[in-house]
């Protein structure tokens, strides 16, 4: 199976990288870019018996390794056979 997990800084966490990108967009002439938040995307190939098991595995993986729950939220974006 193939899955995609995204990890983003929590809303209340300052994201200085996103801020820097937003300012750079302004420098590029795009004053309309009001806010940017930078996260991570993980493309994962896994061996799981069924979708339910894959979901459980991905939740655990995302919570214990891919993200740090103190500062980040994660989302399992897709799971494909």
């Amino acid at each position: 199976m193939k899955a995609v997990v995204t990890v983003m800084p929590k809303q209340e966490v300052l994201d200085p990288q996103g801020k820097a990108i937003q300012r750079a967009a302004g420098a590029l002439g795009h004053a309309g870019v009001q806010d940017v938040r930078q996260g991570k995307r993980f493309e994962i190939t896994l061996d799981a018996a069924d979708r339910e098991k894959a979901e459980a595995l991905l939740d655990e993986l995302a919570e214990k390794l891919l993200s740090n729950p103190v500062i980040e939220d994660f989302q399992v974006e897709s799971i494909e056979a």
Partner: peptide, 10 residues
């Protein structure tokens, strides 16, 4: 407790 983030001014 807590976590360490990227410095405010990068």
């Amino acid at each position: 407790p807590g976590a360490l983030l990227r410095n405010r001014d990068l």
